[in-house]
Amino acid sequence: MSANLYALGAIALWASLASLGVSLTHVPPFLLTGIALIIGSVPAWPFVLRDPSQWRIPLRTLALGVYGLFAYHFLLFIALRHAPPVEANLVNYLWPLFIVVLSPVVLPGVALRLPHVLAALLGFAGAAIAIAGGRELSGTLAWGYVPALAAAFIWATYSLMTKRVAAFPTTAIGLFGLVSGVLSLLCHAALEPSVALQPRDWALLAVLGLGPLGASFFLWDKALKLGDARHIGILSYITPLASTALLIVVSGRPFSASIALATVMIISAAVMGMRAR
């Protein structure tokens, strides 16, 4: 149960990502990501100052962390620039499905049963309805869908592979974020124009860094360490639903029938997956 609570905490924080991002659309994406990830690493600093050994992890483990945090966001932002955002985001939300179906491939001793598969597919269908708002996908063949699919694969495999490397303290997530943030800033310097940030921008970046691009990663790591990756993957389908619902509240749009249907489908998928033994 504690693993599910940690996962729900991460999901709640990720749900605010889109709403916060709307207020920072004028900030280049790599600059936004770099600053937010570095700020997100700050909560780990006091623990590391008391015990520096918590960041003395194998290079392989650090490479996995950078693979997850930096490569995922790099590919996601590329996708959002070169494909319709709604459809690209939908492709990105294949990662919960990947977590469920790749669990028996990546993790030894984990079996995938039919209820897990059905729950994953039902959850993805609900996520699709939540994100697309009941509209048909454009069907446009944009190459940006390729990095979106790659981003989904990276986050799923990163999440699963954290159970395959040598055990590391959750505070090491701060090192992942710090290194990934620096790499993002290097990408900004090389690829994006410089901008002047206002005090309000810094305040929003602090909230973004301490929440969706900070604390969420620590909570997610604890959830994966304590729980069943298949169940957590299915539970993750709440993320696009919660994100869409929050955007509706912020924008003042009415709660549509498609969102109501998505709610039923996602909750049903989560219950089905949790009850599978």
Rank of each mutant, 00 (worst) to 15 (best):
A3Y: 07
A7K: 12
A10E: 11
A10G: 14
A15L: 09
A15P: 14
L17G: 12
A18I: 05
S19W: 15
S23A: 15
S23I: 04
V27G: 13
P28W: 10
F30K: 06
F30D: 08
G34L: 09
I35C: 09
A36Q: 08
I38S: 04
I38W: 02
I39N: 00
I39K: 00
G40M: 00
S41A: 11
V42I: 14
A44C: 06
P46Y: 11
R50V: 05
I57G: 08
L59A: 14
T61M: 06
V66I: 14
Y67K: 00
Y72R: 01
F77I: 10
P84L: 01
L90T: 06
V91M: 03
Y93D: 09
Y93W: 08
Y93V: 08
L94G: 03
I99Q: 13
I99M: 15
V100A: 07
L107T: 10
P115Q: 08
V117Y: 05
A119L: 03
G126W: 06
I129R: 02
I131R: 12
R135K: 07
A150G: 13
W155E: 03
T157F: 04
K163N: 05
K163T: 00
R164S: 13
V165C: 12
P169E: 03
T170E: 02
G177H: 03
S180K: 13
G181M: 11
G181Q: 12
V182I: 13
S184I: 13
L185Q: 07
L185E: 06
L185V: 05
A190H: 15
E192H: 14
V195P: 02
A215V: 10
L224E: 06
A229M: 13
H231D: 02
G233V: 04
L235P: 11
I238C: 07
L241T: 07
A242F: 10
A242P: 09
S243W: 13
T244D: 03
L247T: 08
L247Y: 07
I248F: 08
V249C: 00
S251N: 11
P254F: 09
F255E: 07
A257E: 04
A257V: 02
L261T: 10
A262C: 04
A270G: 02
V271P: 02
G273S: 06
R277W: 01
